[in-house]
Nucleic acid binder design. Structure first.
Lengths: 197, 197
DNA sequence: ACCTGAACACCGTTCAAGT
DNA sequence: ACCTGAACACCGTTCAAGT
């Protein structure tokens, strides 16, 4: 029998949206097409989402959750040395971005009002906290006078990922980008030991 | 008398598009509204642009030109010390991004085929070359074994700007972001003197 | 409760027609 | 050459109506 009458239409819509966004990118994203793919009428989604923006916020939130999981898996696969763990996290971040262009865009470049989406904020904060925790283990014990180091490392990894996604770094294949992420981690760690914040 | 019959409709459309994109952002960007603002019928733009994507590419190209000019102005206003010049360039990059959200998005997050827009590629390359030249002057004479340092510095500044635009760095007001950009330049320069590439 | 069809005011793009 | 109006196949969103 047809499903979608047992409260799982919301999940089905999100799944359809993911497939669609993965196929055609977020700029061509269409609420009516999502409904079509879920096998319901074009305005059925309004029972579960306030509108297109609300669905996009749900996508962004779910994507942040997946990013965090991917980073945690990356760390779990690394050896115990703190620098290696930070590197693994950075690589996982880059890899997630490259493999999920559309979700990355939903996470960072959509324009819903974040204040209204506590779940989104929570998952976003978790990502930053995760990275920051790894960084602290890499720096000398007394050296955490501000949140600047964490933001620096995050921004650098994020910048490499953004430019990698946009294919704006010459010869920007995956291997080169991974080298660049490693270089960023190493260079920043070295630098952070010599610069007073 | 009405203008737009002397070959300046193209320029008028670009100007209208800038105003529109500055007001409502690039996600709400509409070809028909641009035409309306330029005072012509909804399909007059097709005489000057192949379509919406073509107009967007022109916007991106023009925006890169403006970014380069802004960075050059920033350098000109700095003292001669190489590090200060690099810092000034980095600050100008950040400032341009924060003040031109929509253009930044057009430059980096639109999806036209770059191969078809030589002008875009030229202006993009100029930006990278500019930054790279400043960086070389900051490093010890023999220390340019690869293009990695330049990409690192660029990606870091770009990442800070992207996150700043998205308001994803806590307490992300302009002053803090400028401090962060300075810290990025200092930390990376320090680190680059200690890490072998 | 949950879903539907019809309707409204929009899009981007095309095309025959006007000057 | 450059611009126009009408038309096509779409949007997001709303609403009265069905079960």
């Amino acid at each position: 029998m047809d499903s979608y009458h047992h409260g799982n239409l919301r999940a089905a819509l999100l799944k359809a949206a993911f497939q669609l966004i993965g196929k055609i990118g977020p700029e061509a994203f269409t609420l009516r097409e999502v409904a079509r793919r879920a096998g319901v009428s074009h305005n059925a989604p309004y029972r579960h989402f306030k509108g297109k923006e609300d669905l996009l916020a749900a996508l962004a939130t779910d994507s942040f959750r997946q990013l965090n999981e991917a980073v945690i898996r990356g760390i779990a696969g690394a050896v115990e040395a703190p620098v290696e763990r930070l590197r693994a996290a950075a690589r996982a971040y880059l890899h997630f971005g490259l493999a999920n262009r559309a979700r990355f865009q939903a996470m960072f470049h959509s324009t819903f009002d974040r204040q209204e989406y506590a779940d989104y904020v929570a998952n976003y904060s978790a990502a930053l906290t995760l990275l920051d925790g790894l960084l602290v283990e890499c720096l000398p014990p007394g050296a955490l006078p501000s949140e600047i180091p964490g933001q620096l490392v995050w921004a650098s990894i994020h910048g490499i990922t953004e430019l990698g996604i946009a294919a704006r770094l010459e010869d920007g294949d995956r291997e080169r980008l991974l080298l660049l992420v490693d270089a960023a981690v190493d260079t920043l760690l070295k630098g952070l030991q010599h610069v007073r914040m």
